[in-house]
């Protein structure tokens, strides 16, 4: 019983690491451009298949991960520049933009199916050694992903707090007009934010594909549930909140999955999301200003 619990918490931290990669990227995008980008899920699916292509070509999945990350980062900038930014400029309503991102994600998802087919795919065994920490046994892949996530989150933290660029990003996120009048090139800052968040999205897609047994074209769409739950729990638009939210969602889901049917993993994430939306839509760490932005 206790052993199951400890093991589930360990798995939860590993799952939380993947969720954190995705949720932080999702949150950064929203924070900087005020757009809820549902295409994010389809871009994760794209990342998983790009990774598969590289793994099939003989590369290690760990080499594929950063390559795919950067490729998806660039794709994400182009997507924002080419499709979303023009709509925002002409004053399209926010829910029409969400529908555009849903439509774009369906187009992308079905382009992927048309090319690779609907069959489930896998990267092959990535297990390697098993680590035993306390009572928890984790695979090399899980430990690597946890370390990678910690490193990336630390890097993002340093970027946001210690550099002028990061300060410009935070300024743009909290008040775009004011930042612009202070001489910040907000368009370039937002390109950079979409590059960073897209890279995280790509990394999350490959990391997810490494950890799951097999995946198909719905990978990213289904992963939207824990990812959005984590982002909303932490206060959407808040990268640190998303990190904590991801850990909570990951652990809660794995513990619930260990003591009941595994299908309830996503149900737990979903319940967290709905409860937060009903009680405190600004999230645990959301500031009052972000609450104003979320309410109609």
């Amino acid at each position: 019983m206790l052993h199951t619990l400890i093991q589930a918490v360990g798995f939860g931290v590993a799952a939380g690491a993947v969720i954190a990669l995705g949720a932080v990227g999702f949150s950064v995008q929203f924070g900087i451009s005020n757009i809820l980008n549902i295409t994010y899920g389809a871009l994760m699916t794209l990342a998983a298949y790009l990774g598969l292509f590289l793994v099939d070509a003989g590369l290690s999945a760990w080499v594929a991960l950063p390559l795919v990350g950067i490729a998806v980062g660039v794709a994400s900038v182009l997507f924002h520049r080419g499709l979303l930014a023009p709509l925002v400029r002409r004053g399209t309503r926010s829910f029409a933009i969400v529908i555009v991102t849903v439509a774009a994600s369906i187009v992308l998802q079905y382009i992927i199916v048309a090319i690779v087919g609907p069959q489930a795919k896998t990267y092959g065994a990535q297990s390697g050694n098993t680590f035993h920490v306390l009572d928890v046994s984790l695979t090399t892949a899980q430990v690597t992903i946890i370390l990678l996530t910690v490193a990336l989150m630390l890097a993002l933290h340093l970027l946001l707090t210690r550099t002028t660029l990061g300060r410009a990003m935070r300024a743009t996120s909290s008040n775009r007009t004011l930042a612009q009048s202070c001489g910040i090139a907000t368009d370039r800052i937002s390109d950079l934010a979409w590059l960073i968040s897209g890279t995280l999205c790509g990394a999350a897609g490959v990391a997810l594909a490494i950890t799951v047994v097999s995946f198909d074209f719905t990978l990213g769409a289904i992963f939207l549930i824990p990812m959005i739950a984590a982002a909303v729990l932490g206060g959407i638009g808040q990268p640190y909140g998303a990190m904590v939210g991801a850990l909570v969602v990951g652990v809660a889901s794995e513990v619930a999955g260990a003591f009941s049917d595994p299908v309830y993993k996503d149900v737990v994430a979903f319940l967290i999301l709905i409860v937060m939306l009903l009680i405190r839509p600004r999230g645990l760490f959301g500031a009052a200003w972000s609450a104003r932005r979320l309410m109609a």
Partner: peptide
Amino acid sequence: TGLKRLRQDYQAMAMLVVSIMAAT
């Protein structure tokens, strides 16, 4: 879920998640 007068795009996202979840 829209009773709290969430922003429209926020509502849309919540409902999308409801739809994926229900089917799952």
